[in-house]
């Protein structure tokens, strides 16, 4: 099993799980964006639910805590009329003797139709998709440093809605690329959707080795990296990085890579500023930029629900109809 897409696609090329943006065709990525676009209009109505997942059970399976991402998936599932179960399985629960496999078998016994999975191990969603019984769709809500494909797609939707198209755009991703599943998923999606150039900006300690092999151009100098950019994506900096000898201090990081009005002026005048959130004001971005008129950070959050609705609906229709339609647990 070498190609991740043999796992996430049906034989006729439709989505049955959503594990990674890597290797997905431009048509499929565009279909996700188009579907999400259509859901944005339903979000503006008084009655926001559509019946696409009526009678289906979605389980939010979070091995790593994340209130925000979990909430947007929960809301997306509810707006698709699914029943939703939230399970916060702290990593400690599995280390108490129950293996990941035991957890999965227990959940399968509840006849769920979809697992939304977040896990600290890269490849965890892929692993779960290979292990679960057929007819259960897996949506990757973030696995280790590997992928966060729904976040990347909501970022693509944001760019498309604010810049018209991704084709031909210069996009810079700034900060801790090494530990970022968001950056990896963005790079794959941006490349496939025709971005002219994807730049990654940060110190050598936070840029992974051979990042060029993914089609990204590394920059150590923020101003040079931002020159002529259409889109600037800032990443969140975790405090642990200082303890692992990756960075000396938040102050020095902000001086070199923090997004200020002065640095943003090197990008195109109509460049947009994005951030997957939650933001660290004064660490990777100054408030004047985060709240400024080039920032689309809050728009990203609202598009997140539409994108998650889109991939959930698409993956569910890519699954075969279950032989026995059981009552939801």
């Amino acid at each position: 099993m070498t190609d991740p897409n043999t796992v996430q696609l049906t034989e006729d090329g439709r989505l049955k799980h959503f594990l990674t943006t890597e290797g997905l065709s431009r048509e499929l990525l565009t279909e996700i964006l188009d579907t999400a676009d259509s859901f944005i209009s339903t979000q503006e109505r008084a009655v926001k639910t559509v019946p696409l997942l009526r009678g289906k059970t979605v389980v939010n399976l979070f091995f790593e805590n994340s209130t925000r991402t979990r909430s947007t998936f929960e809301l997306a599932a509810k707006r698709l009329s699914a029943d939703i179960l939230n399970l916060d399985i702290a990593r400690s629960a599995t280390s108490k003797g129950e293996t990941l496999m035991d957890t999965l078998w227990n959940l399968e016994a509840m006849y769920s139709d979809m697992f939304v999975v977040r896990h600290s191990d890269s490849g965890a969603a892929h692993f779960i998709a290979e292990q679960v019984t057929p007819n259960v769709a897996i949506i990757n809500a973030g696995d280790g440093r590997h992928a966060h494909p729904t976040q990347a797609m909501l970022d693509m939707l944001t760019i498309r809605r604010h810049k018209g198209d991704i084709e031909g755009k210069i996009v810079a991703i700034v900060g801790d690329i090494l530990h970022s599943r968001v950056a990896r998923s963005q790079i794959h999606a941006l490349r496939t959707l025709g971005a002219a150039e994807v730049r990654v900006i940060g110190p050598g300690t936070l840029l992974p080795s051979d990042i060029e092999s993914m089609g990204a151009v590394p920059y150590y100098d923020m101003r040079a990296g931002l020159a002529d950019c259409d889109v600037v994506i800032m990443l969140r900096l975790q405090k642990e990085r200082m303890q692992n000898a990756l960075l000396p201090s938040e102050g020095e990081f902000f001086k070199l890579y923090g997004l200020t009005k002065e640095k943003l002026a090197f990008a195109k005048p109509d460049a947009i500023v994005m951030h997957p959130g939650p933001i660290n004001r004064g660490v990777e971005i100054e408030s004047a930029v985060a709240d400024g008129n080039q920032s689309v950070i809050l728009n990203q959050v609202s598009y997140g629900i539409a994108v998650r609705m889109a991939v959930m609906a698409m993956a569910m229709s890519g699954q075969q109809t279950p032989v026995n339609s059981e009552e939801p647990a």
């Binding site: 890597e22 890269s122 490849g123 280790g144 590997h146 992928a147 992974p208 080795s209 092999s213 993914m214």
Partner: peptide, 14 residues
């Protein structure tokens, strides 16, 4: 540690 580890987001051994 190399391009495959980077793509897969797996911590590398240099």
């Amino acid at each position: 540690e190399g391009p495959v580890a980077t793509r897969m987001g797996l911590p590398g051994i240099p």
